[in-house]
Amino acid sequence: MKIAVTSASGQLGTAIVEHLITEVGKNNVIGIARTPEKANHLGVEIRKGDYSSREQFNEALQDIDTLLLVSGMDKPEKRIQQHRNVIAAAKQNGVKKIVYTSIVGSEEGNAFSPIVKSNRQTEKDIEESGLQFSIGRNGVYIEPDLEYIDQYVKEGEIRNCAADGKCAYTSRNELSFAYSQMLTDEKHNGQIYNLVGEAITQTELAEFINQVYHTNLSYHPVSVAAYEEERKIALGDFLGTVIAGIYEGIKIGVNNVPSDFEAASGRIHKAIPQIISEYKSVN
């Protein structure tokens, strides 16, 4: 069985390829990347594939049985057609199954909603493709918070607009393990899973980071408007609005969802303190 992974040069795609190699062997894993040389380190066959090019995916998906489609990073209005290019090429090439990395969230109510809405449309397109499918809805990654620890320590706090809302965090490593199972076991066909861990507040996140890193962080809530303005200055209008929208979603509860991780992966999701400890040990 040949399994292809799109966006193989990205952090999630790379992690999924590495897990798949242990499951099915490197000769059965194909990486697809817009810039193939960025994925050469993976040690598997790499094919060129840009979501905007149906023709490239017609080539890239030849002799592929199962496809892992990592959600694109373009603006929401462009993603739907880009994903449709891949789905159409998969059908043309006789791919039997698509596994899609979607996202937890609400289609309305915050600035992140347009991205969630575009993901839901791709879910629908895959369900209606006639192919076997399995869909994971990813929780918020914990890694960006951990990559930001030096800045948190400098400021002495975690500051955002999530207030007391709970967020069911996950990690790229946990997700990649779940996706490797969803790709290789037919029992997951037709299923949609929330791939998340236990939901925690920002105050609890600060406490867990303090436990592992021996820091003294506190949590400081600010208004949605203030946080959005701050993020726009730091990251630009598009990304700043998106990041503020994620935390506004946490505030109103859209990231406090039940976990299907055990059903998808065969084991319980690692606890957040364990994930933080494991991240610290390799970074």
Rank of each mutant, 00 (worst) to 15 (best):
F208D: 05
H220I: 10
G156E: 09
A15T: 12
D164C: 01
K96R: 14
F57E: 04
V104P: 10
A168N: 08
I46L: 05
E59K: 06
V95P: 05
A163V: 04
V224H: 10
A39D: 11
D50F: 09
F261H: 05
S176C: 08
G25E: 08
G253N: 10
N138L: 14
F57R: 04
V282N: 12
Y148H: 15
S9K: 13
R54D: 04
Q191D: 05
S113E: 03
I98G: 12
A39P: 11
V24Q: 03
A244L: 01
N160K: 02
Q121H: 01
A39R: 07
R172Q: 12
V24G: 06
H214G: 09
K187Y: 12
Q132R: 03
D74M: 09
I142E: 01
F57A: 06
V242T: 13
I30C: 09
R79L: 15
Q202C: 07
K280A: 14
I46Y: 07
I200A: 05
S106V: 00
A271C: 00
K154P: 01
A225Y: 10
V95C: 02
A168I: 05
L68E: 06
M1K: 04
C167Q: 10
N28W: 04
R84G: 05
S118I: 05
Q132G: 01
R34D: 07
N283W: 04
G31W: 07
E204Q: 15
E228V: 01
S259F: 07
M1V: 10
I16K: 14
A90S: 02
P36N: 07
A88K: 14
S176D: 10
Q11A: 13
E55S: 11
N256Q: 00
E143P: 06
D74C: 04
I46A: 06
N58Y: 00
D164Y: 01
A226S: 14
G139V: 04
K187A: 10
E128F: 06
K97A: 11
E207L: 04
K78C: 03
G25C: 06
H83P: 11
L68A: 10
S180V: 07
E278P: 00
G266F: 05
I233L: 14
V17I: 14
Q211G: 09
F133P: 02
A89N: 02
L67E: 12
A244F: 00
T35V: 08
G139S: 06
R120G: 11
Y100S: 11
E207D: 15
P36E: 06
R84P: 05
S265M: 08
V224M: 02
I272E: 07
L69F: 00
E123S: 12
K117A: 15
G13F: 03
M73N: 15
I250Y: 03
M1G: 12
N40S: 13
N28C: 05
I276T: 02
R120W: 11
S134L: 08
E228N: 08
E55F: 03
Q202N: 13
E77T: 12
I21Y: 02
L217M: 10
A60T: 02
